[in-house]
């Protein structure tokens, strides 16, 4: 069986596994939605009130019934109602997903714009001071956790420029593109640092590999200019590992960057999940995590296909 087809068949199975896992996990977390909503005041509830609330949150049903109802809803595109938002889970997800998507795209673009030229530069100046500098920066970027980058960015802005990043009420891109970008630039940089470092390293080593291949040498010896060899022959081939890297990274980013969204107070998907866990908003936790897992798997599948299309030498069975 061809590998992509195999992956496609496993897809529903894995999604089912994720559903079961998240459904059980969130219910194993001690404390329920009633405590989360009322705090210590929940101790003042009369038995009748408690019963009414338990029924309202759907906690009075048999767990298998709950799961079956939820799952059959999901299959029909109904993810249930979020108890904290009072809205359908899917709507809450889509309301916040646009931000996460924008953040992911923006940080990918930033990383590629910074990382690719730096990587090519380093490869074509191998072992010279420029190469060394790029590699050191890349290594440091890869070694600094995103949330530390964020903290340091905020810190340096406030100490050296006396300003803090614009984190007022969040404006969506279509309302005020400039205002939106000024809010997103720091979080995107923060998220992009590690990825940019990876782009540098991958593009550098791919470039080096290809520059040493016979056909490139042949092209050079035939009198083709160095620039032409790099841009027309080497670069397209160096892009293949980058596609894989970007795809996998994009899949992760779509899951929402919990810590970065927290630090920069961005209402993205990561924060929705965090709040939902805290509030014991079961339907919302289940919905968002399933959604994130779905994205992750779709992106990975696409990456595999793109990889196969770009490089016919790939034999999937060995993977």
């Amino acid at each position: 069986m061809p590998y992509p087809l195999k992956r496609l068949l496993a897809f529903p199975l894995v999604m089912f596994g994720v559903s079961v896992f998240v459904f059980i996990a969130i219910r194993l977390v001690p404390g329920d939605a009633i405590t989360a909503m009322l705090g210590t005041e929940s101790g003042l509830l009369t038995p009748a009130q408690r019963e009414a609330l338990t029924a309202y949150f759907g906690l009075d049903q048999n767990i298998f019934v709950q799961f079956w109802r939820w799952l059959s809803g999901v299959v029909q595109g109904d993810f249930g109602i979020s108890t904290t938002y009072g809205q359908p889970v899917l709507r809450v997800i889509f309301d916040h997903f646009s931000l996460t998507l924008e953040l992911a795209v923006l940080s990918m673009l930033l990383s590629l714009v910074i990382g690719l030229p730096a990587g090519i530069y380093a490869a074509t100046h191998k072992d010279r001071p420029g190469d060394l500098a790029v590699r050191v920066v890349a290594m440091l970027g890869q070694s600094t956790p995103g949330f530390v980058v964020g903290l340091l960015l905020i810190f340096s802005l406030s100490v050296f420029f006396g300003v803090l990043p614009q984190m007022g009420s969040f404006v969506p891109f279509w309302q005020d593109p400039l205002g939106n970008l000024s809010q997103m630039i720091l979080p995107a940089l923060t998220l992009g640092t590690a990825f940019a470092a990876a782009v540098i390293r991958v593009s550098r080593s791919a470039m080096l590999d290809i520059l040493s291949e016979d056909y490139v040498r042949t092209a050079r010896s035939k009198g083709l200019s160095r620039r032409r060899v790099i841009w027309r022959h080497a670069l397209p081939n160096a892009l293949i590992p980058l596609v894989t890297l970007s795809g996998v990274e994009f899949g992760y980013l779509l899951g929402g960057a919990v810590l970065v969204e927290q630090i920069f107070a961005l209402p993205g998907l990561g924060r929705v999940v965090l709040d939902a866990i805290q509030q014991r908003d079961y339907a919302l936790v289940q919905g968002t995590i399933l959604f994130i897992a779905f994205n992750f798997m779709v992106v990975n599948l696409l990456v595999d296909l793109a990889y196969a299309a770009l490089d016919p030498r790939i034999r999937f069975e060995t993977k």
Binding site: G17, L259, L274, I277
Partner: peptide, 21 residues
């Protein structure tokens, strides 16, 4: 497939849920 399920979970959220439990 079990490993696929774990991989499909965002790492920090998976850790977070385990710790919450």
């Amino acid at each position: 497939r079990l490993m696929d399920v774990l991989l499909a979970f965002p790492a920090i959220l998976l850790a977070l849920l385990i710790i919450a439990i």
